[in-house]
Amino acid sequence: MAELGKIGVKIAQLRRSRGLTQEELGKHVSVSAQAVSKWEKGDSLPDLSIIVELADIFDCSTDYLLGRKGGLRSLLPQIREAFVNMTIEDKIGFLGDIITAAEVSILAPPVGAHPSMVHIHLGPAGIGLWAKDRLVCIATTTFLNEAVETLEKEAEFPLTLLPDEIRLVLLALLRDMDDLKPDYAVDEKTLQSLLPNTLNFDHILVKCIELGFVDRVRGGYRLNFKADLAVRLLAILHQTINKQGTMNVTVGKPK
């Protein structure tokens, strides 16, 4: 009876979340309000065919209704099958929903926000970018660390867009993902020790400040937020373009 009660509780919660009365839900599946009441109290179970109908009404899986705890990976076959018939926009929207449901996700955009606005999460868990129906990108700290390590050794496109001396300064000032403090700064002596002796320190720092990459603050120098994010995004592009395992290109409009 305990398991019946759990199924009944889920049906009641989902019904209320849809703003349906017991009578209204009963009409959807051709049963009486009394039958719905018995399900929710745990006195009886809906027939298998009705469970399938309830899953469609509540937009959930039958496993969820029945209390099966198979983990999210058990949903992958269903997701893959659904993806075949989904548009690119629907896929991006779905992934956006996954990002916002995650504990370390970026926040959903405010009501009325323009859909092209990019919402950014930058923190110890990595980078999350989301623009509704347009962009979904997740980069974990593991991937970001690998990307930055690669940048410290070599500079291929798109890093060749930056002069080498500027790239070295930006990398030297890049903070650890688990220490993104607003008052972060690298003192002048430490920063000089991280750069080649051949670099004209004063000249290049002035140039970085004029370009808007670096701020001179109390305690030394730091990348401003935009520069910090830009360096990490360039690192993602660098790693993706130059170190990818596979690359699929579709020419023309998708069918």
Rank of each mutant, 00 (worst) to 15 (best):
V169M: 08
A147P: 10
D187R: 02
A235G: 15
A155K: 10
D228S: 12
R216H: 11
G212R: 06
T250I: 13
V52W: 00
E103M: 08
F201R: 10
L195D: 12
F83W: 03
H203G: 03
Y184V: 05
I57Q: 01
T190Q: 07
R175K: 15
P158C: 05
S61T: 15
S32R: 00
K253S: 12
D164L: 15
S17A: 13
K10D: 07
H119S: 08
D59E: 15
L195S: 07
K253W: 04
T150Q: 15
G245K: 12
D215S: 05
S44H: 04
L237D: 11
T240G: 10
L107I: 01
F201N: 07
D179F: 07
L159W: 00
S49N: 10
R134Y: 13
D202Q: 15
M247I: 09
T141I: 12
T87K: 14
L151S: 07
L174H: 12
D56F: 03
A101F: 04
L237C: 09
R216S: 11
V29G: 02
L76W: 11
M86A: 09
S74K: 13
K226N: 14
E188P: 03
A102M: 14
P115A: 06
L199I: 14
L174S: 15
S32G: 11
L72H: 08
Q239H: 15
G70M: 10
L205E: 02
K153Y: 03
R18M: 13
W130C: 12
L159E: 03
G252H: 05
V118I: 14
V29H: 00
I204P: 02
I99H: 06
R232T: 08
M247F: 09
L4I: 00
G8S: 01
I79G: 01
G71D: 11
V251D: 03
L25A: 01
K226Q: 14
W130V: 10
I209P: 02
P110M: 10
L65G: 06
A2I: 05
G219I: 09
V111W: 00
K253A: 13
L233K: 02
I120R: 03
Y221I: 06
Q192S: 13
R232I: 09
E149L: 11
D47K: 13
L211D: 04
A172M: 04
E146A: 12
E103H: 07
G67M: 11
L237Y: 08
N197F: 08
E165D: 14
